[in-house]
């Protein structure tokens, strides 16, 4: 690193050139049609593979066969029977579980006693795969709907509790102090400041609990149910009817997508103020 004063013989100065841009990247752009395109491309490739024989019919049925199985299911009238059984369990288990979860999460967020008493219990019970408790639920609530709804209830209850009290904890204390400084009642502060402040976290908790509920739904229906998408898939598997199995999986995937879409819609409506 020896610096020398520029001598008269130094090379000529380069001509001025623009400052190179280096701020690009790290900035996801929305590319709306890529998603559907990938979908269509994958299914197209798969169909092509099946038609040409690259993918064996027993190894993986063609999408067209799966679609035919779905159509057959629809024609026979069993589609609605399976779907309505599943959707009823899902709606009941998930909505009751989420409601109870919000209430318990709220009380943990608001009352020190509830926090001290319930957080350890929630932490201990949350990681248990609820499906492991199904036999117990069958003894408690019967082999019928009760045990399945209970599984879904507990599956969606715990994530909602955790999301809710996390959301309550994250509410800006400055806003609560503002409420107190204007002499708002306790109930007003909870209703008008704490709840709306925790709502984004509660809704993202709902997203997670809904996915968990769908997973548990299938598992519970596989263990003991006459009707339901899970039962349909299990039966298809037992008969090695892979086209029906894929049709069932498509049903599950659409259920997940529809639930996610509905929650997204609720978020946009309820959280309009966020933009």
């Amino acid at each position: 690193m020896s610096e020398q004063p520029p001598s008269p013989a130094s090379p000529p100065r380069p001509t001025p050139h623009p400052v190179p841009f280096r701020g690009g990247g790290f900035n996801p752009r929305p590319l709306g049609i890529v998603g559907p395109l990938v979908f269509v491309g994958l299914i197209g490739l798969w169909e092509l593979g099946s038609q040409t024989g690259v993918i064996g019919a027993l190894f993986l049925p063609a999408p067209s066969e799966a679609f035919a199985a779905l159509n057959e299911l629809f024609q026979s009238g069993f589609l609605w029977k399976h779907l309505s059984a599943s959707l009823q369990r899902l709606a009941m288990g998930w909505s009751l579980g989420s409601l109870a979860g919000v209430l318990v999460g709220l009380s943990i967020g608001l009352f020190s006693l509830a926090r001290a008493g319930l957080v350890p219990v929630v932490s201990a019970l949350f990681p248990i795969p609820k499906i492991a408790l199904l036999p117990l639920f069958i003894i408690w609530f019967g082999i019928g709907e009760g045990s399945k709804v209970a599984t879904l209830f507990f599956g969606s209850f715990f994530p909602t509790v955790i999301a809710t009290y996390g959301g309550v904890d994250a509410v800006d204390r400055g806003l609560i102090r503002m409420g107190q400084s204007f002499n708002l009642s306790w109930l007003s502060i909870v209703r008008k400041i704490v709840l709306p402040g925790a709502l984004p976290a509660i809704l993202s908790g709902c997203r997670i609990s809904a996915s968990i509920a769908i997973i548990l739904l299938v598992a519970a229906e596989m263990i003991g149910a006459e009707f339901g998408v899970g039962a349909y898939i299990l039966l298809a598997g037992n008969l090695m009817a892979m086209d029906q199995l894929i049709a069932g999986v498509v049903l599950l995937s659409s259920m997940g997508l529809i639930v996610a879409f509905l929650i997204g819609k609720a978020e946009r409506r309820l959280l309009r103020w966020r933009r």
Partner: peptide
């Protein structure tokens, strides 16, 4: 006794 806060303390959802 009424406060005016540095960070405004407005409810963003109202």
């Amino acid at each position: 006794l009424t406060y005016v806060f540095q960070d405004f303390a407005l409810l963003p959802w109202r």
